[in-house]
Simulated scan of single mutants.
Amino acid sequence: MKIAVMGAGAVGCYYGGMLARAGHEVVLIGRLEHVMAISNEGLRLQTQTFDERIGVAASTHASAAHGAELVLFCVKSTDTEAAACELEPHLSDTTLVLTLQNGVENAERLRTILRQPVAAAVVYVATEMAGPGHVRHHGRGELVIEPSEKSEAVAQMLTAAHVPTTISTNVRGELWAKLVLNCAYNALSAITQMPYGQLAHLPGVAASMNDVVAECLAVAQADGVVIPGDVNAAVRGIAETMPSQYSSTAQDLARGKHSEIDHLNGLVVRRGDALGVPVTANRLLHTIVKAIERKHERDARR
């Protein structure tokens, strides 16, 4: 299968690399520094069980997705519409676009732009870009995807590539379950610049996370979302399964970039305000991260 990865950062490079390693034709579409490194030396995929360089095509242009049967859409939530507009002219009507993004609204946003079928995916992986063309995997890697005409074949393909994948008829609830994890960890990891394992053992952090989670669950209930599983247990488990991982928000702030916080705690704040649900803890975390972003902008202009 020919597969294009739109947004070849840490998540896109990990899943694209795993599929290329399994023999699929993959093209990674990303930033110039990564594309040059991958084109010259291959993608370095460093996991907990192997460290290999994988030969894979790479490009800075969305046109490289031409002919792809599957697109892994991995751009930041802040770039969803712009990336979709770049990508759309180069896809066939039957290309499946699978969104591997943070947040709960990206599939709906894509469907307003793309004529191609879109399916949401919930991503549970700890990765980082350790350098140009070098992705480091810290743990997990499973996907939960939305039903579609191609989802069964895609799930089988991913599983065969050592990416455990299941299909859920309640993908909205699954996305919210992931959102709660992100709301609990991302901002706190970003503000402290600490990985999950260290963060979770700080005094007061567990209680603060409980407050954030309780607000998220109250908003979800008011919004008619049925979240599967034991969310509180899942939150506690993140620090154990991904102890060395810094949140994507922490990685963005460390590089002086804008984060996806508006689509994480910010989404909970917007929905809570609309539904009349108090969201004090999420509002505070959202406000602090936005203030840090503003400071970075001010410092960059000096």
Rank of each mutant, 00 (worst) to 15 (best):
N182W: 06
K257D: 13
D230K: 08
V205L: 04
G237F: 06
R255W: 08
H263T: 14
G229P: 06
A239T: 01
A250W: 01
L202Y: 02
D252F: 07
Y185A: 10
Y196V: 01
Y246F: 15
A220K: 08
A187T: 10
G197T: 02
S248W: 07
N186Y: 07
C216S: 06
T241W: 05
H263G: 08
V213K: 01
E260Y: 02
Y196C: 01
P195W: 06
V231Q: 07
N182M: 04
A206F: 05
N232W: 09
A214W: 04
N232D: 08
Q251I: 14
R255I: 09
Q221N: 13
L188S: 00
D223Q: 11
H201Q: 14
A206H: 11
E215D: 11
A187F: 09
P203Q: 12
A254R: 04
N182L: 00
N210G: 15
G229L: 12
I261C: 05
Q198C: 10
R236M: 11
G197K: 06
Q198P: 04
G224N: 06
P228L: 04
A222Y: 04
A187K: 05
E215R: 02
G197R: 05
I238M: 11
I227M: 10
I238S: 03
R236T: 11
R236P: 07
L199N: 03
M242I: 09
P228Y: 05
E240G: 09
N265T: 08
M209W: 03
Y185H: 07
E260T: 02
V205H: 06
N232C: 12
T192F: 14
L202W: 10
N265H: 11
H258A: 12
R255Q: 14
M194C: 13
E215H: 10
A207L: 09
A184M: 00
A239W: 00
R236S: 13
E260N: 01
T241D: 12
Q193W: 02
L253E: 02
A239F: 02
M209P: 00
V205W: 00
Q221K: 15
N210H: 14
A190E: 00
M242K: 13
R236V: 09
T241V: 15
I261N: 04
V212C: 05
D252I: 04
A222D: 12
C183V: 04
H201G: 11
N186W: 01
C183N: 09
Y196P: 01
S248L: 02
P195I: 01
S259L: 02
P228F: 00
S248E: 12
K257V: 07
A254T: 05
V213T: 15
M194N: 09
Y246T: 06
N232R: 15
R255H: 12
D223I: 10
G224L: 08
G229D: 11
A220F: 04
R255A: 14
D223P: 08
E215W: 05
Y196F: 15
D211E: 14
S189N: 11
V235H: 00
V231I: 15
G197Q: 01
I261D: 01
A206Q: 14
L217A: 13
E240H: 13
M242C: 12
A234K: 12
L202T: 10
S259C: 07
D262S: 07
V213R: 06
L253Q: 03
